[in-house]
C-alpha cells in the first residue's frame, strides 16, 4: 500500500494564528495545529462516522428543513 501523507497545510491569517497561540498557552494543546485540528473535528462530523462530511450534523438537519420548505424533500 502506498504511504499516504498524514498532514497537510491550510492557510489562516497571521493575526488569527497569534490569537490562537495566546489562547492555548497553559492548555494541554502542544501547538496551534493540534488545537485547530481539534476544533475542526468538533465542528465537523468525521466522514466515517456520519457519511455526511463536510458539514456538521446540525447543518444536515437545517438543510433538510430548507429542502422540505422548498418542496425538494417530501
Amino acid at each position: 500500500m502506498p504511504r499516504r501523507k498524514k498532514f497537510t497545510t491550510v492557510s489562516i491569517p497571521v493575526q488569527l494564528f497569534e490569537k490562537i497561540k495566546k489562547q492555548i498557552e497553559n492548555t494541554g494543546f502542544p501547538s496551534v495545529s493540534s488545537y485547530v485540528g481539534y476544533l475542526l473535528r468538533e465542528v465537523l462530523v468525521e466522514a466515517h462516522e456520519s457519511g455526511e462530511m463536510p458539514f456538521a450534523r446540525e447543518d444536515a438537519e437545517k438543510i433538510r428543513r430548507r429542502l422540505r420548505a422548498l418542496g425538494y424533500l417530501r
Binding site: E52, A60, I63, L67, L73
Partner: peptide, 11 residues
C-alpha cells in the same frame, strides 16, 4: 436525480 437519496443528502 434529487438532492437527497433515501433521506440522506447526496454529496
Amino acid at each position: 436525480l434529487e438532492f437527497t437519496k433515501d433521506g440522506k443528502i447526496v454529496k
